[in-house]
């Protein structure tokens, strides 16, 4: 290998389904002079004893399947690969209970939550929260099975349905207070210590969920000092990386962090953001093997310059 080639940095992108985000990150990495190695998570056979020599020193985890991404990240990390995000961060973000526990322990404002561990005690958990409340699975995304529970009959039906699914994780009942919020929430994307995008996500007409995957649309959201502080505190609490921090606004203006995403989708956020989110991620990945990642301007600084 000649010196020119060896100096060119290679960044891996671990995927199982190529979306717009993966193509965009790949394009931006190449624009920044890096080589990109696409790693199909579905085809990996990893030995715990023999390090994968073919895997680059830095790999961006971009799997759609949470368990696949997490477990491959764990193995590669053990072999010395710098995973973005780390397996630990992925693990926390993929589990709503683990996320809530950390946020609560570090006084990051988040919705009041109770959890029950069987159908038998689930109704008690729901009634202790009071109606209406929200029931969510602890693993899952895109708003799947996130349900507003407005009365006892609905609660009983939902618990019965969960029970019948036969999957043990469905017997973990994670119940949150219903926040009286506008028909939107806020998605902030953090890359390291910087907020690179801040958008409102509006629920589609006649629905309650704001997920872009369900048809919600985005608009730019001003990054207030309070929002910045809340989001960065949440990111630091989870462990930093490339994160999607979701925030709700209470009627009295208080901000509550309700979710942190570890394999963030940002096509919706990009539609309402001037700067390239993918490029910020590319830049972060390229400098990720160094001690102390290069500081990048935050949205606030970018806006101030404009």
């Amino acid at each position: 290998m000649n010196s020119e080639v060896s100096e060119k940095k290679t960044i891996g992108i671990l995927y199982d389904r190529i979306r717009w985000e993966e193509k965009e990150i790949s394009r931006r990495l190449e624009e920044r002079g890096a080589s990109v190695q696409m790693i199909d998570g579905k085809l990996q056979v990893l030995s715990l004893d023999t390090p994968e020599e073919a895997v680059p020193a830095v790999v961006l985890e971009r799997c759609v399947s949470f368990y696949r991404g997490l477990n491959i990240a764990s193995v590669l990390e053990a072999q010395g690969v710098r995973m973005v995000n780390s397996a630990k961060v992925l693990d926390i973000c993929g589990n709503k209970l683990a996320t809530s526990l950390l946020l609560s322990r570090h006084n990051v404002p988040s919705p009041k939550t109770v959890v029950a561990f069987s159908a038998e005690s689930a109704l008690q958990a729901i009634e202790s929260m009071g109606y209406p409340c929200v029931m969510k699975p602890i693993v899952g995304s895109w708003g799947r099975q996130v349900v507003p529970v407005r009365d006892r009959e609905t609660a009983e039906a939902l618990i019965e349905l969960r029970e019948q699914q036969g999957d043990s994780i469905q017997s973990i009942f994670y119940v949150q207070e219903m926040i009286n919020r506008p028909p939107r929430d806020i998605r902030c994307i953090t890359v390291g210590e910087n907020i690179v995008a801040s958008v409102y996500r509006y629920a589609p007409a006649d629905t309650w969920k704001t997920n872009v995957a369900l048809g919600g649309h985005t608009e730019a959201c001003p990054l207030t000092r309070e929002l910045e502080d809340t989001v960065l505190k949440a990111s630091r609490t989870i462990g930093l990386g490339v994160l999607g921090v979701d925030v709700m606004e209470k009627q009295d203006g208080q901000l509550l962090v309700h979710e942190v995403n570890g394999t963030v989708e940002f096509k919706g956020a990009q539609a309402a953001t001037t700067n390239s989110i993918a490029d910020k991620i590319a830049q972060y990945a390229i400098s990720a093997d160094k001690e102390g990642l290069a500081a990048e301007p935050s949205v606030r600084e970018i806006e101030a310059e404009a």
């Binding site: 399947s65 949470f66 693993v139 899952g140």
Partner: peptide
């Protein structure tokens, strides 16, 4: 379908995985 390979204008496809419980972001 997922694009399985691309070589000089020839493409092979395979049936794409379907959405599972742990899919998302």
């Amino acid at each position: 379908y997922e694009i399985a390979s691309l070589n000089n204008g020839t493409v092979t496809i395979k049936v794409a995985e379907s959405v599972k419980e742990d899919w998302g972001e």
